[in-house]
Simulated assay, not measured.
Amino acid sequence: MRYAHGGGLTPKEQEKREQEKREQVRLAAAERFACGEKTEAISRELRVTARSVR
């Protein structure tokens, strides 16, 4: 039984979960950016850099 940071997931499973999380953040940022929200507000709320939002 493993209780590492990934909760017992294999490295591939962990990477896939992290990739899915990043994709959700990207989609949320893109949607909000398209609606005209300011880059700084989006980046602050999603906890990413302003450059990532742009």
Rank of each mutant, 00 (worst) to 15 (best):
M1C: 05
R2T: 13
Y3M: 06
Y3I: 09
Y3T: 15
A4C: 15
A4Q: 08
A4Y: 12
G6V: 03
G6N: 08
G7C: 06
G8T: 02
G8Q: 02
L9S: 09
T10G: 01
T10Q: 00
P11V: 05
P11T: 01
E13C: 11
E13S: 11
Q14W: 12
Q14P: 00
E15G: 07
E15P: 03
K16R: 14
K16W: 06
R17Q: 07
E18M: 10
Q19D: 04
Q19R: 14
Q19W: 07
Q19M: 06
K21I: 07
K21C: 00
K21A: 07
V25G: 01
R26T: 05
L27K: 15
L27P: 08
L27V: 05
A29S: 13
A30P: 03
A30L: 15
E31A: 15
E31H: 13
E31C: 05
A34Y: 01
G36E: 02
G36M: 02
E37Y: 05
K38H: 10
K38N: 12
T39P: 03
E40M: 03
A41K: 14
S43E: 10
S43Q: 09
S43Y: 09
S43I: 02
S43W: 05
R44Y: 11
R44N: 11
E45K: 14
E45N: 13
L46V: 02
L46M: 06
V48Y: 06
T49C: 01
T49N: 12
T49H: 00
A50P: 08
A50G: 12
R51K: 11
R51V: 06
R51H: 04
S52R: 01
R54T: 05
